[in-house]
């Protein structure tokens, strides 16, 4: 069995989500190769070659792959699948964007966001916002799978795979990249952080998030938010934790002014320790919190900052 893992990267750094996807692939058994598709992404290919247990790194480099747009990824990956039994990508917005397109082109039903590998053809995945765990067995010849990174350990480094250059598709394609507006932050990435502190509607305004940010900086934490806080425009969309936002599973998750809707819980309930700060003692968030503090956040947050 040969498995292809599609690397998540920004043309400079290989994302940790890739290492976790390699772990999921290794659990299926067989040879694991990594595909690095990008533009001037030689550094990423070199990093991928060091991931433990990887056989070969395929490196396709070209301007059409700079942003891994779905149409170009389809043109690149579908022909490669003659040599593979499975293709896996992290369930990031990127992987979720291109992989179903490849599945349909291969006439395969994708298995989305797996959290466990039971056998080479059998997987567990959350449905209904994580309120149910579905075990499915794929009857397709080729398996097309997105992997929830927080559910797997990162593959260790120490590999020395060979890097093989392959042709990038030339295009033209019917979609074109125009621009990007990326949130700049010195804090850890939300899905990889050991500590996450999130604010909800109770924060009242974007300015008040500064209280959360100061605590985050003291703890080396990432900052997240509930959908309500994002919809209200307090913080950008990429802060959203939940069913359709980011899924996090840090050592410590601190929910501030978040009531705990089903959709938010779906994105954080696998955190090791959960703290809830909310003035409403009946808020559902307290039902999943290890430590609850019923308090006005405008008093509690400055005290917390002081105490750290």
């Amino acid at each position: 069995m040969a498995i292809l893992v599609v690397a998540e990267h920004d043309n400079t750094h290989l994302s940790d989500a890739t290492h976790k996807t390699v772990t999921a692939a290794a659990k299926m058994g067989g040879d694991v190769d990594i595909l690095v598709a990008g533009e001037n992404a030689g550094d990423v290919a070199a990093q991928a070659a060091q991931v433990g247990g990887v056989r070969v790194v395929l490196h396709a480099d070209g301007s059409a792959l700079a942003k891994q747009l779905a149409e170009a990824m389809q043109a690149l990956i579908v022909p490669l699948m003659d040599g593979y039994d499975a293709v896996l990508a992290p369930a990031t917005t990127n992987g979720k964007n291109f992989l179903p397109r490849i599945a349909a082109a291969l006439d395969v039903m994708q298995i989305s966001e797996i959290v466990s590998v039971e056998a080479a053809d059998t997987f567990v995945r959350p449905i209904y916002a994580g309120n149910a765990m579905q075990t499915v067995k794929s009857k397709d010849k080729i398996k097309v799978i997105t992997v929830r990174p927080t559910a797997f350990e990162a593959a260790k480094s120490g590999g020395s795979a060979s890097v093989k250059s392959i042709d990038a598709p030339a295009g033209p394609f019917k979609s074109a990249f125009v621009s990007e507006e990326l949130t700049k932050s010195d804090r850890p990435e939300l899905t990889a952080a050991k500590i996450v502190i999130s604010g909800g509607r109770g924060m009242g305004s974007g300015e008040n998030f500064a209280m959360i940010e100061r605590i985050a900086d003291k703890l080396g934490a990432a900052v997240g938010a509930s959908r309500a806080a994002v919809d209200a425009g307090f913080v950008p969309n990429d802060y959203q934790v939940g069913q359709t936002g980011k899924v996090v599973a840090p050592e410590l998750y601190i929910a501030v002014g978040i009531s705990g809707a089903i959709q938010h819980l779906a994105g954080m309930k696998d955190s090791k320790v959960i703290v809830a700060i909310n003035k409403d003692e009946d808020a559902p968030i307290f039902q999943v919190a290890d430590y609850g503090l019923v308090a006005d956040l405008f008093k509690a947050l400055p005290e917390l900052e002081e105490a750290l």
């Binding site: 039903m109 309120n131 959960i274 919190a289």
Partner: peptide, 16 residues
């Protein structure tokens, strides 16, 4: 194409 083997409850978190 996918055969559903089972649907189970997720691990429960106890309130602390």
């Amino acid at each position: 194409r996918l055969e559903q083997i089972t649907v189970a409850e997720p691990p429960k978190r106890e309130a602390g």
